[in-house]
Design a protein around this nucleic acid. Structure first.
Length: 586
DNA sequence: AAAAAAC
């Protein structure tokens, strides 16, 4: 179990000076009377010069009024003025609306025999209860409020690993509790270390988050923010989200009020860094959600810029956690640049009784897709599968295609809406709400909705247009069958998708799905996807590329230990041997 | 070739 000194080992020497006046996060939310008493002595740490105290003492209005701006992480004084909104309020309302809603709880029976694999040096042991982990009283209370009874597989492994201060690359299906897996250690770590945290190093309107969480879409950032706010409720740890167009929702104001955990999309964060509204020099935790997407061709330059070319502490000083349901080898290779002596964690995806998604592939010509979709929707209605308890998510390839299909569905009497990158943020958020509430139980979407979004009650995912990449398919169908519930995924396949035939049929075979015989005709034609997973079998969304025999970084820190050091090092006595490979399956 | 993400 980590001690506070584990968390503070890298804190500058000046830290001690701040101790007496600093108000740690867990005390920031005390009632106003208690706060007021300590206000005049708001932290005057080593960095803090006179002006800060003058400002605090002499001004009755805080942030926003004067524009001078100061990072007020340092005082709990103004925090008491605003009551922290109860982030659990929405849950109560939704719960009433849906009657006995049980999706806050995970169906643990379905996860009982899930395969788990770890690799890396000295992998910390997993836990089986939250009680075994010292997360702190406030966080434990929030876990109860979230109705989490016991940790999910990814949480059982990832939380001890990250509490031990280790970097992590984790493959786990979204909906299996990933967000909590990286939020709990971050919140807990910030609470513990804050007792001796250094002051922000300058006097400006810049924000100095301790933790940075990046995700590839605005909606996913919103979702992570909402979840993180629940976990951080009344801990004093402040969570702020930044995404999309300039400050339509008071994001800049929130930043100025101080931030401990910043959740952001990459473009927005680059913008904030350029405007010098955010500094990354205090970042102790970096988490990338949907990390393989964050490091693909479209995002990689931005991520490199943020992580390597700004003022963020380097790998090894900060703690880095990468999460995704899929982790292609090439991306793992790239990701190694951002990690230091990391643990690789893979939580089973398919191939066991945990597979809760029934997958179907149907041969549908381009011209027949619409009428075929209508048949499916009619059949669903005939089965009594409709309304807000049985939402249908339809994926198409293009934004134009999404608009067209939405329009066509609507004029044919189907209550549909759509979400894609050409719609305004307002429209996007409205569409998502309208879908979630069941007002429009059909949502037509581009890949913007493929990853990470947690939408309860999605009973059916239709791949109206199949993606070109099997990993995208995996993420898309993962919008159903969540939290232990079952789901259906139907794909419309035709000659345009022949490149996907082999990986798709492989994936379905792994998942014990019925694969139509005709698909092998296409599979034979294409060589795409061969060995994409490093021949590592299909139980996982990925396999540690460091274990691949073709990978040899000889002389790097990964395999520096041990006699009999082989070309891959995996079976050498370097800590990668079978003894450290744990599996809940065996 | 398309999608996502800042102004």
């Amino acid at each position: 179990m980590p001690t506070p000194s584990d968390y503070n080992g890298k804190v500058p020497a000046a830290a001690g000076a701040a101790r007496t006046s600093y108000v740690p996060p867990h005390l920031r939310n005390r009632p106003l009377s208690a706060e007021a008493a300590s206000a005049p002595v708001a932290r005057s740490g080593g960095y803090s010069a006179g002006p800060r105290n003058d400002r605090i003492g002499g001004s009755s209005s805080y942030i926003g009024g004067g524009g001078g701006g100061w990072n007020n992480r340092s005082n709990g004084w103004d925090r008491g003025r605003e009551r922290e909104a109860n982030p659990f309020q929405d849950d109560l309302e939704t719960e009433q609306e849906f009657g006995s809603r049980d999706n806050t709880g995970i169906n643990f029976d379905a996860y009982e025999d899930i395969p788990v694999e770890t690799s890396g040096k000295d992998v910390p042991s997993p836990v089986s209860t939250f009680a075994e982990i010292d997360l702190g009283e406030a966080l434990n209370l929030n876990i109860k409020r979230c109705k989490y009874v016991k940790p999910t597989p990814v949480q059982r492994y990832a939380i001890p690993i990250s509490l031990a201060g280790r970097d992590l690359m984790a493959c786990a299906q979204t909906g299996s509790g990933k967000t909590a897996a990286f939020c709990f250690p971050i919140i807990s770590g910030i609470m513990k270390s804050s007792q001796s945290a250094p002051s922000p190093p300058s006097f400006s309107r810049m924000a100095y988050p301790f933790a940075l969480i990046l995700s590839p879409t605005r909606e996913l950032s919103v979702q992570i923010h909402e979840e993180a706010r629940k976990f951080a409720y009344q801990t004093g740890v402040r969570v702020v989200v930044a995404y999309g167009v300039i400050d339509c929702s008071g994001q800049l104001r929130d930043l100025e009020k101080g931030v401990d955990i910043l959740v952001a999309t990459p473009g927005r964060l680059v913008d904030l860094l350029e405007r010098a509204r955010v500094s990354l020099q205090m970042v102790k935790y970096l988490a990338l959600d949907e990390a393989d997407r964050m490091l693909d061709m479209g995002f990689e330059p931005q991520i490199r810029r943020i992580v390597q070319q700004m003022d963020m502490p380097p790998a090894g000083v900060r703690q880095t956690m990468l999460f995704s349901a899929t982790f292609p080898k090439e991306i793992q290779c790239l990701a190694a640049d951002f990690l230091s002596n990391y643990v690789f964690l893979a939580v089973g995806r398919v191939g066991s009784s945990t597979d809760l998604i029934v997958q179907r592939v149907e041969y549908v010509l381009e011209t027949d897709k619409r009428s075929h979709l209508m048949d499916l929707l009619h059949a669903q209605i005939a089965n009594g599968n409709q309304g807000k308890q049985a939402l249908t998510l339809v994926f198409v390839e293009t934004k134009k295609g999404a608009d067209a299909l939405e329009h066509w569905l609507c004029i044919n009497g189907f209550p549909a809406t759509s979400i894609h990158g050409d719609r305004s943020q307002q429209e996007r958020e409205y569409a998502l709400r309208s879908f979630k509430s069941g007002k429009t139980p059909i949502l037509v979407a581009t890949d913007v909705a493929a990853r990470g979004l947690d939408i309860p009650h999605v009973a059916h995912v239709v791949n109206f247009d199949l993606p070109n990449d099997i990993d995208d398919y995996v993420h898309r169908i993962g919008r159903t069958g969540r939290a232990g519930k079952t789901g259906l995924a139907t794909a419309f396949f035709n000659d345009n998708n022949s490149s996907l035939a082999r990986p798709l049929s492989d994936l379905m075979l792994e998942a014990n799905q019925e694969v139509p015989a005709w698909i092998s005709r296409f599979a034979a034609r294409s060589s795409y996807g061969k060995n994409r997973r490093g021949g590592g079998g299909g139980r996982f969304g990925g396999r540690d590329f460091r274990r691949d025999t073709s990978y040899n970084r000889g002389g790097t820190d990964y395999y520096s230990v041990g006699a009999g050091h082989s070309s891959n090092g995996y079976n050498a006595s370097s800590g990668y041997g079978p003894a450290t490979v744990t599996s809940a399956w065996d």
